[in-house]
Design a protein around this nucleic acid. Structure first.
Length: 607
DNA sequence: TTAGGGTTAG
């Protein structure tokens, strides 16, 4: 073995041929040994030090402090194969102490070998080595990552028995473990019991809820964190809160977080900036998002991905493709999420040729393994454009298992393009895979209804009733004078209900002059035409628009958010309203933004 | 004398 410079630079020469001399000077050598360990940078140097250590230890019975330090250095080094080497050292110990077990647990957790960490802990238990407050944070992290709630609960019991429950590090780990394993009540219970809530306690609560998609809880906690004494809201909490704003469309809160960040943090990191881009894009402010994006010093593939899917969301497919080339030119590699964003952008803008090329390039490059999601995008792209045969061929040629998403997307296209024959194939396959999704039955029933196949409509409806499936009620939210108002279909609960319905009648009267006639096929109920007209008139989006026209200043932009995809009648209706009343109307539905202006929509009727 | 929790974004 070549002697490395680090060994030559030791303060003393470690070589002793006389065992007695070695024994006498061991204390000094011990210091040398620790000094060398500290400066050791790679596994080869480490192995040399380890060899010396064995040689010295042969003469001196043991030096457990040094041995433990040696083990820790290796286990936490991050070198290739370091945990295997650490395990071999650990196995050589006659009676490893608590520190050594903690070292192994932490080492395995850092290397994402969570099961091994749990094995080490059970060995610790078997050998009767008592864990301490350093043992549990890492161990609980292993349970969190493995989503092993059963083991997590047992470990919590042991923490309690050992009287370690008061340790704030252990408590924060418990909050996180319970939260990320979906046990929100237990997570909150630990949090509530905390005498001193640290920034990490709050962060654990906020980020665990964000990870579970509990956005409103996440925002509520975030507000609590900001108003808590002695806790400074940190960037990580901000990022989670911005993500919650993006997911709920909470623009005002998002803006105030942005303002707070600008006031308190001199240089925003890339994660925070990406979250800002994503928040603005999802709250309908594409220009603001682009402004932040352009001013960033550096961007990574997550930043680009946020911007690309943002452009897709706003129907800017060509701009999204330009952004994608820019990203490639910057030397950044696309991952599977970026490809989904780009394919979606093409799909939402009818860029069939371009989307197909992106998909082919992805296959050719071979760096990203296509998933069912990618095939879903391709099927959507072809299907929306009316290329139903090609879409079906794509599904049949998928090298991976067909899932409900691909068939649902295909079914939706068949409905739009009124191809019942292919639609029936899609319906059959879809119901085989996910028979309990009420939305699927609705889509099928809608398709039959448009084709006036009433027997099939009735059969589908009976199936819905027999299975006890409940349709998700649609709603629209509109902000007027800083207050949000939520309307459901046929809503008559609003205090201004009388004025709203009077307005709706007036609107319909004017719409008739613009050549609007209601699309009654959108109503699935078995009722007469007049009733269908009434039902259609009371769709939540129309009620929300009527309310906004009454109570917002003339010429101002109307912003609406809804939980479901817009029906085609509401789409036509809103286009005409934008001309008649000279208003810009922005509607965010489940899939994207629609900007209605001067009688046309930014989606170019392609959604 | 050795060590620990929450890392956040698409």
């Amino acid at each position: 073995m070549i002697k490395s410079p680090i060994l030559q630079s030791s303060r003393h020469d470690l070589t002793h041929h006389n065992p007695a001399e070695a024994l006498n000077s061991f204390k000094a050598k011990d210091q040398d040994f620790l000094f060398l360990l500290k400066r050791c940078n790679d596994i080869d140097e480490f192995k040399q030090i380890h060899a010396r250590f064995i040689k010295l230890s042969f003469f001196c019975s043991s030096s457990s402090f040094s041995a433990s330090t040696l083990l820790a250095k290796c286990a936490h080094s991050g070198w290739d194969n370091s945990m295997n080497y650490a395990a071999s050292i650990f196995r050589g110990f006659d009676d490893p102490c608590t520190f050594d077990f903690n070292t192994m647990i932490r080492g395995y957790v850092n290397e994402t070998c969570f099961e091994e960490a749990l094995f080490v802990y059970s060995e610790m238990m078997e050998r009767g080595i008592e864990p301490d407050h350093f043992t549990y944070p890492c161990l609980l992290k292993a349970c969190t990552r493995l989503k092993s709630i059963k083991e997590g609960k047992q470990i919590h019991g042991q923490v309690f028995k050992l009287g370690l429950e008061d340790d704030v590090f252990v408590q924060n780990s418990l909050i996180n473990m319970y939260g990320r394993c979906g046990e929100m009540a237990l997570s909150s219970a630990v949090f509530e019991k905390l005498e001193f809530k640290t920034a990490a306690s709050w962060s654990s609560m906020v980020s665990a809820r964000a990870a579970m998609g509990l956005w409103s809880e996440c925002l509520m906690l975030f507000r609590g964190m900001c108003s808590a004494k002695d806790v400074k809201a940190e960037e990580s909490g901000m990022v989670c809160a911005l993500s919650a704003c993006a997911n709920t469309g909470a623009l005002n809160l998002g803006r105030s977080i942005h303002a707070f960040l600008l006031r308190n943090i001199s240089k925003l990191n890339i994660a925070v900036q990406t979250s800002l881009v994503d928040m603005y894009v999802n709250c309908g402010c594409l220009d603001k998002a682009l402004h932040i994006f352009k001013k960033m010093d550096s961007r990574n593939n997550l930043t680009y991905s946020a911007m690309i899917s943002g452009l897709a969301l706003h129907g800017e497919g060509e701009a999204a493709l330009r952004m994608f080339s820019e990203m490639t030119n910057e030397g950044l590699e696309s991952d599977h999420v970026v490809y989904v964003s780009v394919l979606n952008a093409c799909s939402h803008s009818g860029l069939v040729k371009e989307g197909h090329r992106v998909f082919e390039d992805m296959l050719k490059e071979g760096k990203v393994e296509p998933t069912a999601e990618h095939y879903g995008c391709l099927v959507d792209l072809l299907g929306r454009a009316g290329l139903l045969e090609e879409a079906l061929e794509t599904i049949h040629s998928m090298p991976i298992k067909q899932n409900d998403v691909v068939w649902r997307s295909f079914l939706s296209s068949c409905r739009v393009h009124q191809n019942v024959e292919l639609g029936q194939i899609a319906a059959r396959e879809l119901l085989k895979l996910a028979s309990h999704n009420p939305g699927d039955y609705l889509l099928i029933s809608n398709m039959y209804s448009q084709a006036r196949m009433w027997d099939d409509v009735a059969r589908t409806r009976t199936e819905i009733a027999n299975k006890g499936l409940k349709q998700i009620p649609g709603f629209s939210i509109v902000e007027v004078k800083g207050k949000t108002h939520k309307f459901v279909s046929q809503d008559r609960s609003h205090p201004q209900c009388k004025e709203i319905y009077k307005m709706l009648n007036q609107m319909e009267w004017q719409l008739k002059f613009e050549g609007y006639s209601p699309d009654l096929t959108q109503i699935l109920l078995n009722v007469d035409e007049e009733e269908k007209r009434e039902r259609l008139k009371g769709h939540s989006q129309k009620v929300a628009i009527a309310f906004a026209l009454l109570y917002t200043p003339p010429g101002s932009v109307i912003k609406i958010a809804r939980n479901l995809r817009m029906c085609s009648d509401c789409h036509t209706y809103t286009k005409k309203i934008s001309i008649i009343y000279g208003r810009e109307i922005i509607v965010r539905d489940r899939n994207r933004f629609h900007l209605f202006k001067g009688g046309i929509c930014s989606c170019k009727d392609y959604w």
